[in-house]
Nucleic acid binder design. Structure first.
Lengths: 233, 233
DNA sequence: CTCACAAGTGTTAATTTGACACGAATTGCC
DNA sequence: GGCAATTCGTGTCAAATTAACACTTGTGAG
């Protein structure tokens, strides 16, 4: 059959907003753009979609090429398509956001791009509409994490309640009462207490927990209410 | 500056999942596809993105060409991009969902496509991946309407509480207690009671309400809890 | 051994939720 | 003209959930 006539073909790219948490603050991974235009400027990691791959496949590929990681949380965010968003040539960009355990990230995988982590409130000026993408990703992360057990993706397999609370406090830029926090988190029955403790941040040590993987998958849609007054956010 | 080298350009389309509510059931508007392949089969309304327009602009244009309506609720849903989703040629499709007041829709605007409304549980086999798009749109509508005052977009400017409840019951395919329903809806302070009544469905008549437009815009992010046990849906 | 520090835990009052039933208004019919 | 039928509109109560709040425990360092 013949092709569609008289229609415009355009480039299609993906861009990834990659979140990580180092124990202190929520960060995103940026690179120095490798090609013109705007070569050398800070940019989200991205790339063009290949002829035989889906957008999701492209995002997975690009994420792996930068971080070396597979099997990370990846979600389609939004498609950016203003005609002039890329000054060289009309390009659609499908933005994805990814949540990775920052400790699994190995910098040397991706030296080619000189990547670096930036705290969310210190993101530099980025190329094209990438700052807009970052803002949308941040908003969506906040929105979704208030309702679903999402932030676990940013932690190692074993983590403590204080670490988890610290992560939530970073994401929402506020403090929570630890008694209420632990009661709510544990009431989901999603966490399994381990026998060993993390002594990294206190002499007493804090018990490790792991996700109950089965319940996690089955209950992902379960509405959490970790965030008091989430409707005010 | 020169164009990007050695990259694949592809077609980019938008497809619209158009919801309407006729007082009985939630419906979507489908058309008979006008071009090959699959000419004559049922399809979502869609079209290619023009060189000088954004995806949102294309969706607005296409929606108007089918329904004659402007200013309707339109939201980007998801971008579908499997390499073979359109057998003729690689085409990305950015799906949008729209909520319209079905009573403002005038069939004659769009006779060219022989459009028709289908209840959501009687949607026929559609071309390409359009059934998948419809499912995603329906899921998202349910999800979002449980948290945000969204369904008002499907009703006329003046509506009654029984009408509103009937709409919610259609969307969630269940019944609600009208005392609790009205208490919750009215507690949002989003509705303004009118002096006149709709006598269309009872002898006593039901008071009309209008949206408080200012509060509606300001509080769209406000989490509703109209749906008891929304987490079970 | 004691000091310093973070971890871990329980109670209460206020609010929110869901379950539940009857009187009011109007029309059409006899 | 009254009565039957229909839908609208409203309030209470018990249970569950939420937010606010402070002290004891464990351990390593000095």
């Amino acid at each position: 059959m013949t092709k569609y006539q008289n229609q415009t073909r355009m480039l299609a790219a993906v861009d990834c907003i990659i979140f990580g948490f180092d124990g202190q603050s929520l960060k995103i991974l940026l690179i120095h753009r490798g090609i013109d235009p705007e070569k050398g400027k800070w940019s989200l990691m991205g790339g063009f979609i290949e002829p035989d791959e889906s957008p999701e496949h492209a995002a997975t590929r690009i994420l792996k090429s930068l971080t070396g990681l597979e099997g990370v949380y990846l979600e389609q965010l939004f498609t950016f398509g203003k005609p002039l968003r890329d000054p060289i040539e009309r390009t659609l960009s499908i933005a994805f956001f990814a949540l990775i355990d920052i400790h699994r990230y190995e910098k040397q995988i991706s030296d080619e791009y000189h990547p670096d982590w930036f705290p969310l409130n210190k993101v530099p000026r980025l190329i094209f509409d990438h700052n807009e993408m970052v803002k949308m990703a941040k908003d969506k992360l906040r929105y979704k994490a208030a309702l679903h057990p999402l932030l676990f993706e940013l932690l190692p397999k074993k983590f403590t309640l204080p670490q988890l609370q610290s992560l939530y406090e970073s994401v929402y830029d506020t403090g929570f009462d630890k008694r209420n926090f632990s009661r709510k988190v544990l009431s989901t029955r999603l966490l399994v207490k381990q026998e060993d403790k993390d002594k990294g941040s206190s002499k007493k040590g804090a018990y490790y927990y792991k996700l109950n993987a089965k319940k996690y998958k089955a209950n992902f849609q379960a509405f959490l209410n970790i965030i008091p007054n989430a409707h005010l956010l």
